[in-house]
């Protein structure tokens, strides 16, 4: 994991923590900790300021746990050229 990744992970964790009031770990189900699809999108827009950033609903539908959310956000934060 390079420095940029570490930075991103730190940011992701802090935003996730702001949105979840209960205790959780990576295996916690989003529904269990009170995160619904809209709050996930809110988390994404707090992390990413680029309004052009696309969200693929198929990918988002596969996100069920906090760990998967972290992974999905990491994908969104990755430099654009890697996505295309």
């Amino acid at each position: 994991m390079n420095h940029a990744d570490e930075m991103a992970d730190g940011e992701i964790s802090s935003v996730i923590s702001r949105h979840i009031r209960a205790s959780f770990d990576d295996n916690s189900l989003l529904a269990e900790v009170g995160l619904h699809s809209l709050s996930v999108l809110r988390i994404a827009s707090e992390l990413i300021t680029d309004p052009d950033q696309e969200i693929d609903p198929t990918g988002l539908a596969a996100v069920h746990t906090v760990g998967e959310l972290r992974q999905w956000l990491r994908g969104l934060l990755a430099p654009k050229e890697n996505l295309r």
Partner: peptide
């Protein structure tokens, strides 16, 4: 109805 918004900017 399933939300079909694709860009973050569209949520505004």
């Amino acid at each position: 109805p399933v939300m079909a918004r694709r860009t973050l900017g569209s949520f505004d």
